[in-house]
Amino acid sequence: MANIPSADELKKRLQDNVIYKSVFRPGSIYRKGYRDTSRDRALAAMNNVLYHLHPVKVKRHGLKLTYTYCLGGTSFFLFILLTVTGIFLMFFYRPAAGPGSEIAYLDMQNLRANVQFGDLVRNMHRWGAHLMVFTVFLHMARVFYHGAYKPPREFNWVVGVILLLVTLFLAFTGYLLPWDQLAIWAVQVGTSMAGFTPVFGQQIQFALLGGVEIGPETLLRWYVLHVLALPFILAIFLAVHFWRIRKDGGISGPL
């Protein structure tokens, strides 16, 4: 049994090859180890993909939970969580409806009854969506009360307003997909409001519904918006939002 290498030897062999070294950057703590020094703390941030989000050092007052309440971070995390649960749901859902073939609704029932964890994931997706609308709104209030929209952060506030609207629209498009009574009548109420837009209200309503009233075309349209178009737009504005936080000097304050 003398041929079995020791743990240290195995670790050395694992780390001392081309593949491992290609995965982790030269200064990475996974390559050169981590000691709790200022240098390694800096390297831990620098050699991490999170370096896109966070600089090496942040203002100390921003660490307090009562400063940010982690609202922006929670909103972003909920977006990730909704993406993951949403991808899961997409495996079991077809956006098809219409007289005689209520595939969307049947898929929902099948998801709840026959898919392992299907109901749980659907619940998480739905409650998470409501929670995200709520946290985004609270995030806006927090930012206002801290005056964090003041120069040089004016434009990032504007991006934030866009993100709020896209979030609302994402939640609203998702609301229709179960294709139950709750869904279509909530959408009926919402889109009839859009129909009152001055001058070209009818056109807007037609574009939203994909017809003069809610039907299978509406479902397909809102499905594509919900799973592809709006997340794409949201992701782009999120990138700008995060980038501007760092470019504008990190978190605002202290008050």
């Binding site: 200022s38 703390r41 800096a42 831990a44 941030a45 991490n48 999170l50 966070h54 600089p55 090496v56 050092k57 942040v58 203002k59 100390r60 007052h61 921003g62 660490l63």
Partner: peptide
């Protein structure tokens, strides 16, 4: 007054 992102913020 700044603190390290790792470990404090993360």
């Amino acid at each position: 007054d700044k603190a390290y992102t790792w470990p404090h913020l993360l």
